[in-house]
Every structure is written in C-alpha cells, then in structure tokens.
Amino acid sequence: MSERLDALEERINALRAEVRRAVRARDGALARSLRAELRGVERAWDQALADQEPPARETPSASEPDEAPRAGAAREPGALVPVREQVHQALTILGVPASAKMIVAVHGALRAGSLRGTQLASLRRDEERSFRSSPFARPYYLCAALTDRLSASRGLLTVSTWPLERRAIGPLSPRVDFLTTAIRVAEHILRLEEAGEPTPSGAERLLSRLAYNVPGVPVAPDAPPRPAMVVKAARAELEVHAGADADARARIADRARARLGDAERLFGGTILSLAREEAS
C-alpha cells in the first residue's frame, strides 16, 4: 500500500476518534464538521485506492446516485410504471386497506416489482394536494382508511373508488383485512397455477408468512402451504368475524357520510372536525 494511503488511513483513524470524542462531549456542531472532514478524507482514500487498482473490476463510482439502475443491468419492467400506479395495482389485488410494508411485499412477490417503502412515504400527501387543487380530476386517488374517530388511520392506504365501508377501520377490521389479504394472495397464486405459469418463489414465501398466522393451515416444514388450504382456513376464521366487522364498519361509514366533506371523507377528518365529533 502506498504511503499516501497509509497517511490517509492515519488521518481517518484520528478523525474518527475526534468525532467520537466530540459526540461524547455532546458537541454536535464540532462532531458534524469533523464528520464532514472525515467523509472528505474517506473519499480521498477511496480515490487513492481506485487509482491503484486496475480499473476493470467494478464500474459503479461514488458519484453515481444510488437510485440509478446499475450499469448494464436491464431495467425492471415495474420501474417504468409510476409509483402510484404500482401501489394501485397492489391494492387492487388485495382489495383491503394495507400498510406500505404490505403493499411493497405484495407488489414484490406477485408483480415482481421493486417498490421501496420510502417511495410511498409522501404518496398520500401528494394525492391529497392534487385532490384539493382539482377535486375528482383523476380516475382514482390513493387515500386514507378512516378510524372510528373519523381521522386518517396511521399508515394504511386505500383507493378512493372503494366503498366507504371498506375504507373504514373498526376493531376487528385489521384481523379481517389480514385474513382477506391471505386469501387474495393465495387466490392469485391459484390463478397462476391454473394458467400453467410458474409461481414466483417470492409469492410462496409471502404466502408462507401469512399462512403461519392463520389458524388451521397444515404446516409441512419442507413445502410451502397449499394455497387452497390457506383460502379454506382463512375463510373459516373470517366467517367468525365477518358480521360484527361489517356492522362496525357500516356505522363508521354512516358517520363519515353524515359529518365529513368530500376531501375529509377521502383523507380523514381534520382536528377541527374531530373536535366537533368529540363534542357531539
């Protein structure tokens, strides 16, 4: 290793120690500036190392943004479709309110997509902004699920074209929606099987994960659960909750229709409307 690299390493180690000393002394500003200097030296080290190596082996360089597809790799088909479109596809498969995490998992498993959780973070806010500036201009909006306080449920996404009853969340709804998710994923795999298409291994893994928490699915350590068994077992539990859940959802939906305006119905009641609700 060249002297330059040695010197840089020495500097890197010294800086790291200084950074940690600063952090321990709760000196945030100093830590930040030291950290910045450290990154600079680390980059110089990377560069010095690269200068030494024959350039053939690796192509990606530090300057390339990490979002960009790797050079030479084919773009995945999903990447051409806008994020909201992909989320819509996943929610349509499920047909029930879902968390960003579930949407990413389902889309990855069943549509071979490569959504990231972070891409969904601002989605609901963007949709709301778009709706408020020109209401109903789009054929669908990705919107909120409604709690029994008529506020937007944390973390759940729905589609505006669904009936309000489906978008409302009563106490049993998370369970009902989980069982429905298991059924929908199993049915999707069944359709693929019928069409003679191979089941993606990701889909099997997702189904195993879901089926594990559905009582009555036979477990064989070697094989993924049979989709038909998952459907049967999940329906059996669903049967138990369906009536009570439908009633609770209907009550929330009725209240939402009575008290909320269009935008609030889609994106959840504001603090003000909630206070009104509370007072009544």
């Binding site: 506020s151 049993l172 998370p174 959840g268 603090i271």
Partner: peptide, 15 residues
C-alpha cells in the same frame, strides 16, 4: 378464543 381478535390503536387518534 378465535372470536377475540379486536385490535385498537390507542395512539391513532388523528393529528
């Protein structure tokens, strides 16, 4: 028992 599956998020009260 299976029927007892209600889930309430006490933190999810809007805003």
């Amino acid at each position: 028992p299976i029927p007892l599956a209600a889930y309430t998020d006490l933190g999810d009260i809007g805003g």
